[in-house]
């Protein structure tokens, strides 16, 4: 198939009609840029959306955050877990709301996709902790959203998406290679357009855009490297599935931020297992929310 500029234009124009993030979440994101914001102010914003409040409280009270059944208000959640965690929870709950779990394609299992994404999120958070990155929750969100472009493809450019999956199966190539053949555009780019539309922070957008090629992102940004590494580890462990079973070569720049000795790699995989157990809790709660809403 030849490179088709028209296809890319179609991609761009359709992406213009992408779903928008709830106003509350966008407002929350802006608010938290101000270091002087109070827990009470955050509470006011979230509480204006009752459905979101219920979801946030359900997640913060799960075993995933380590305070099961102990947090009764959003203000309390902010005090115990911090602003960043509450923002990440609100954003996660909203993202799951926007995209149905039901499969649109025989060869793409959305549950497996979210398993991969949540797996990647908890591993990115683990790696962030390991390298003492200042915001572990931001790393969680970058892992969760790194492949969001694939869901956009499935939802809005379904014919192209099916062709890509066919390429993956027939030629045994990665999803990334297949999409370049089919539409000369990548899920990473589409995901970053969505990030712009959602006014996500610059570093988060960059991590979505460059999770396959972190060496091309802003050298000061760490998130793209964390997303890249977490994606590789998630694939290595075979957690979920995001369209193909293959693993990409890890970029040297990204690998070096881990400062890990060869002998410690098996231990890192042991730690990853612990995180994956937590991811299962998160996944179950999110699935329950979907089925009850």
């Amino acid at each position: 198939m030849s490179v088709d500029k028209q296809t890319i234009r179609t991609v761009v124009s359709k992406v213009g009609t992408l779903p928008t993030l709830p106003y509350v979440v966008t407002k929350l994101s802006k608010m938290l840029e101000n270091p002087l914001v109070s827990a009470e102010e955050v509470n006011k914003v979230i509480s204006s959306d009752q459905a979101l409040t219920a979801k946030v409280l359900k997640l913060v009270n799960s075993a995933f955050y380590g305070f099961p059944g102990q947090i009764s208000t959003v203000t309390h959640a902010v005090v115990i877990l911090g602003f960043s965690a509450v923002k990440s929870i609100a954003l996660s709950a909203s993202v799951f709301d926007m995209f149905p779990m039901e499969n649109k394609s025989l060869y793409f299992d959305r549950k497996k996709f979210w398993e991969h994404s949540i797996g990647c999120a908890v591993i990115a958070r683990l790696l962030a902790r390991r390298i003492r990155y200042h915001d572990e929750e931001e790393a969680f969100v970058c892992g969760l959203l790194h492949d969001i472009g694939k869901i956009i493809l499935d939802q809005y450019l379904h014919d192209e998406f099916v062709q890509i999956l066919q390429e993956v199966r027939e030629r045994d190539v990665t999803f990334l290679e297949a999409e370049q053949v089919v539409m000369n555009c990548t899920h990473a780019r589409i995901g970053s357009w969505l990030g712009e539309q959602w006014s996500l922070p610059a570093q988060l957008r960059d991590s979505i855009a460059h999770h396959h090629n972190p060496e091309q992102s802003n050298p000061e940004f760490t998130l793209s490297k964390l997303a890249h590494l977490a994606d590789a580890f998630t694939r290595a462990k075979g957690i979920g599935n995001s369209g193909d079973d293959l693993i990409h070569a890890v970029s040297r720049e990204a690998w070096d931020i881990l400062h890990i000795a060869d002998k410690d790699i098996p231990d890192l995989f042991d730690e990853i297992d612990v995180e994956i157990e937590k991811a299962e809790i998160f996944f179950t709660i999110i699935s329950e929310m979907k089925s009850s809403s």
Binding site: T174, A232, R235, A236, K237, G238, D245, L246, I247, H248, A249, V250, R252, W255, D262, I265, P266, L268, F269, D270
Partner: peptide
Amino acid sequence: RFKYVADHIVMKKIIRGLKEH
């Protein structure tokens, strides 16, 4: 899973670590 990248220097380390794990 690693068939296309098995000779890559970093991937060799990851494969060894993963198998050990």
